[in-house]
Amino acid sequence: MIAIDHIHKAFGATQVLKGVSLDVAAGEVVCLIGPSGSGKSTVLRCINGLESYDSGAITIHGQTVDVRRSDIHRLRTRVGMVFQRFNLFPHRTVLENVMEGPIFVKGEPRTDARRHAQELLEKVGLAEKQAAYPTQLSGGQQQRVAIARALAMRPEAILFDEPTSALDPELVGDVLTVMRDLATEGMTMVVVTHEMSFAKEVADRVCFLYGGQIVEEGPASRVLSEPQNARTQDFLRRVLNH
């Protein structure tokens, strides 16, 4: 459903993406791994048009992602995003954070939006926190609210950019559990992560990004256990010994 075809992207003189191609089928979970600065976030941000790309093409179910086109807003409602730093709206309660998009973007009736939001909070294990403000929650709880907020738009896919990197180690598990459940339910997911065990267990496919190119990709078990490329081997050795 997500088709990335040979995209290039430069920030000023720095070429950040050098011909990245990636197809994600509906229901598939793809993990993007790679060293810092390799362009993982940029790939994700191009998919939902938070960043423009210079050449190549990205389509969602055949519809082109183009930041300058007026349908970009509608497209973004179809592809959710979860950020490393949660980015909840601090002036709104947990419930309001989740209801914001359905009510103000999709124009859903308030009662429907509320019921759906409460179901989602239940699902991420935070039903009793709906009246709290984000700063009253732990990082792991905030991230689960952020996932509920993305789900509230009933997206066809969700992009995760290092969703557990800003969390204390003991809070990572709850977030990964929610993500694992989503994967099991058949949600299409592209996940940038350093959690290799999660990738190994949940991902259908792992892509290793290096210097703006996907230098190795394949089934999670193969890429993570028997990497062919020397750069992948080197990267995995460093991450796993960490």
Binding site: R76, G80, M81, N87, F89, G101, V105, A150, M153
Partner: peptide, 22 residues
Amino acid sequence: DAGQIEAAKSIGMKSALIMRRV
């Protein structure tokens, strides 16, 4: 912060709505 504005964009909000609601 810019992160909230990006989050708002990511749920499909347009700039006028982001100004008003966020």
